[in-house]
Amino acid sequence: MAEMLADMDIEQVFKRNVKRVWRVCYSFLGNAADAEDATQATFLRLIDHPQNFEDEQHEKAWLIVCASNLCRDMLKSSARTKVDELIGEHELVDTRAQHVTASLEAEELLKHVLALPDIYKDVVYLYYYEGFTTGYIAQMLDVPASTVRNRLADARARLKRGIEGVK
């Protein structure tokens, strides 16, 4: 284990993936501070459990799945629930606005992505942003490929409805 870690340059891994991991975390948690914590925790998890990645795609997939799981854990915690109650939707949008530099259209879409149920968020990101196939996503998430496709279809329909509703 130690040898694998020594072979792995954590700094390079971090630089290659930090934005990606942060995006995933942000899409789950909806604010920058929690996304930062979760991103940090993801890389700490990698340090604690060194992986022998086959290639960068494998590395990317592992980090995304790890980040997603960590975010789900955070969301499950009672503390997080209480914080959500206190923060409220208004502040959530304000916080997010500080980190979004896209057009209004993209920002609106992002809002819909963030509003998706948690089970859709990672598959949407993996499929539409990272370009993984449904079969590969199924392996990553350890769910049947049909489940991935159904989740994607449902998420896509929700996003389309949201976009068209805005238009």
Partner: peptide, 16 residues
Amino acid sequence: ELRAQLRTAYDALEPD
């Protein structure tokens, strides 16, 4: 189309 839109949206989202 959705892919392009989502990529644009996600790209805009990054830590400082």
